[in-house]
Write a protein that binds this DNA or RNA. Structure first.
Lengths: 208, 208
DNA sequence: CGAAAGATTGAGGTGTATCAAGATCAGTGG
DNA sequence: CCACTGATCTTGATACACCTCAATCTTTCG
C-alpha cells in the first residue's frame, strides 16, 4: 500500500484530537490511509443509537465501508493529533485497473476488514465483560507491537466510554474490569497508561 | 452480478440441507453466488467458540471474507436444499481487470458486506434481546420482499439455535421473545412459520 | 414405531446495567 | 499561579434482564 504515491496524487491531512475526518452523510470521495495517530469510526442509527466500530492506526484504511455509496456511512474522528493520506477514490479505481497487484491489495484489504469485524462479533457474542476487556488489551498490545512500539507498555488513546462502546458494555464495567485485571496483577493501569505484567494471564482470561 | 456468465466459467453446485459449502481451513479458490436456498456462515475460534455471522440468500455472495487468504476463514452451511454458482477467484480477478463495472461491483459488494456487519454490530450492542428478535424478523421480511416473496408470511430456514447465535443471545431467549411478540399480536408463530400481523408494532419494538 | 433433534415454558441464579457519589485530571480565565 | 469548571474515571449499592438448569411437548427421520 505504501507504493501508492507513485501512481496517484496523495494529499496529507492533519486532524487535531476530536476533529472529524468525515461525518456520516458527507460526500464520499476518497479513502484515507492513516499515517500517524489514531482514529475511531462510529456507526450511527437514525434514532441516535451509536457504537464505535473500529480504532485505526498507522497503515490502516479508513472510509472503505462507504465504497459504492455517494455519502459516508459512518463518522471518523481523530482521538489524538493525527494525519492521514487522502486517496481520491476514482483515481484509486483507475490505478487498480492498470495494476493487478493494487487490485488484489484492495480486495484483500476489504476482505480483511470483514474478517476483523467478524472476529470481534464472535468475541462479543461469546465472551463476558472481563474477557472482552482482556482481549481488547491484547489486541491493542499487538497493534503497538506491529508498529514497532512496546507491547508491554502503552497509552490507550481512547476514553473508557469509547472502549465501552466498542466492547458493547458500559464504561463502569470497563473500569471495574481493568481494576480487577490489575488486582490479579495481569496489568497495571493508571488512567490511560497500561502496563502488561502477565501476558499469559491476560491471554488465559481472554479466551476462557 | 448476473451478467457474469458471459465473462467467466460458472459451475453450479447443489447442497442438501446441512451440507457444507466450505469449511474453515479448506483451500480458498472461488466466490459463491447463492442461486437458490439459504446458507449460513459460521465464525470459529480456536477454543471452540463459534457464532453464526450471516444468512445468505439468492443474489448474495458467500466466501468473500476469505479473499486474500489461502484457506477459508469460516464455515458455510446450507440450511435447506440450495444451489450456488461457483466463481473461480482468479478468473474473477482477470475479468475485473478488463471490466471496470465489474471491479466497481466487487468493491461495492465487499463494502456492503462491511456495512451490513456493522449495522448488526450496532444493533447487538444497543438493543435488548426482544428488540433484536424483532429487528431480525423485520430484516428477514425485507429479504423475502426483495426476492419477490411475501414480507407478511414466511418460513424461517434456520433453527432457534442459529438465530440465537446470530443475535448473541440464548435460544430459550429467542423462543420467549417470539412468544411475547405473538402475545402482543405483532406476529404469529408456529415453529418456523412466521406471520407479521402488525409491522408498525414490530418496527417500534425493534428501534426502542 | 422409537429415537433424536428442535422448540417451548418455568423457576431460580448471576452478571451487568443502573443510579449515585467521589476522586482525579485537563483546560480556562482571572 | 491558582481557582474554577467540566470531563473523565473509579467505586459502591441495588435492580433487573438474561442465563442456566430442567421438564415437557412436538416434529422429524431412520
Amino acid at each position: 500500500m505504501e507504493a501508492l504515491q507513485a501512481h496517484l496524487s496523495v494529499t496529507r491531512r492533519k486532524h487535531a484530537a476530536g476533529q472529524y475526518l468525515f461525518r456520516a452523510g458527507q460526500a464520499f470521495r476518497a479513502l484515507h490511509l492513516v499515517h500517524a495517530g489514531t482514529y475511531k469510526t462510529c456507526e450511527l442509527a437514525d434514532d441516535g443509537r451509536e457504537k464505535v466500530t473500529a480504532f485505526k492506526m498507522r497503515g490502516e484504511l479508513v472510509g472503505a465501508e462507504s465504497i459504492g455509496l455517494d455519502t459516508h456511512a459512518c463518522d471518523a474522528i481523530a482521538l489524538e493529533d493525527s494525519e492521514t493520506w487522502e486517496l481520491p477514490y476514482p483515481a484509486v479505481m483507475k490505478a487498480a485497473a492498470q495494476l493487478p497487484w493494487l487490485q488484489a491489495q484492495i480486495h484483500a484489504a476489504l476482505a480483511a476488514e470483514i474478517r476483523c469485524d467478524r472476529n470481534w462479533m464472535l468475541l462479543l457474542a461469546t465472551l463476558a465483560a472481563e474477557p472482552r476487556v482482556a482481549a481488547f488489551l491484547m489486541h491493542m498490545a499487538a497493534k503497538q507491537a506491529r508498529l514497532g512500539y512496546s507491547a508491554r507498555h502503552f497509552i490507550l488513546r481512547m476514553s473508557r466510554l469509547d472502549i465501552a462502546s466498542f466492547l458493547a458494555i458500559k464504561h463502569e464495567t470497563v473500569s471495574r474490569a481493568l481494576s480487577h485485571l490489575a488486582d490479579l496483577n495481569y496489568i497495571s493501569v493508571q488512567r490511560r497508561e497500561v502496563r502488561v505484567l502477565d501476558e499469559d494471564g491476560l491471554r488465559g482470561m481472554a479466551t476462557a
